[in-house]
């Protein structure tokens, strides 16, 4: 069954987990066929710390744009499953992107949002999710039917397995704690882009100008 509507654990009932742990669980399931685009800050840092893959793209700025960047990658490489990792604060900046993904019916795209209810990297100020904004409800309202809260680590892995196996778009939300990330990225933007494009086999095709 493709729908996640049966997985209707509420935000309040979802276990508070750890981003570094969940990121490692995700990356352990991935091979060279899957791409990951991680948003600014701690999403990036934990993805980096989980083991650098050439199919990872680490955003250094442009808060809120991990999801539309991932949509672009997914449009370019429809045979590849593409994961967007965002924090709650970042996703809240660009909620329209959920509707864009739904309108495109982007089957090879999976969105994972880490929700700790705070702008952790700037000192722990509260985000809107801490006062009742439910990102899974918003995603469903935007047209992403396959949206669910991960109730615990085992359920998170089940949801990721489904996203890997079947057509999306998928939206997986996980409540996380306020622990620091397990590392930090390099800051060389050009190197990050080149490695990612080589990891996707994209560099030669797009750099050859016709005529």
């Amino acid at each position: 069954m493709a729908s996640l509507m049966a997985d209707s654990a509420s935000r309040a009932a979802a276990k508070i987990m750890n981003r570094s742990d969940l990121t490692r669980r995700l990356v352990a399931k991935l091979g060279a066929a899957e791409a990951v685009i991680a948003g600014i800050g701690n999403c990036n840092f934990d993805l980096w710390a989980s083991g650098q893959r050439p199919q990872n793209f680490y955003m250094l700025g442009s808060m809120g744009l991990a999801l539309p960047i991932a949509l672009g990658v997914a449009l370019a490489q429809p045979q590849r499953k593409v994961f967007a990792l965002e924090g709650d604060g970042s996703l809240l900046m660009q909620l329209g992107a959920l509707g864009t993904v739904a309108a495109a019916s982007q089957r090879n795209l999976a969105i994972i949002v880490w929700d700790n209810g705070i702008y952790q990297i700037t000192g722990g100020q509260k985000t809107l999710t801490s006062s009742g904004t439910d990102l899974v409800a918003i995603a469903r309202g935007a047209g992403l039917a396959n949206s669910a809260w991960a109730s615990d680590e085992e359920h998170f892995e089940t949801l990721v397995n489904r996203a890997l196996a079947g057509d999306g778009p998928w939206f997986i939300a996980a409540r996380i704690d306020g622990e620091k990330p397990a590392g930090t990225t390099e800051r060389d933007a050009a190197k990050i882009r080149l490695q990612f494009m080589q990891g996707l086999g994209a560099s030669a095709a797009v750099q050859k100008v016709p005529g």
């Binding site: 685009i37 539309p68 960047i69 990658v73 992107a97 864009t100 495109a104 996707l200 994209a202």
Partner: peptide
Amino acid sequence: ICPAREEEAVAIVSGAYLGGLRG
């Protein structure tokens, strides 16, 4: 693609370039 905001459009076309598609 007709996204909700121009910066989304910038990110979509940028991501597509990373994946080998011009936009």
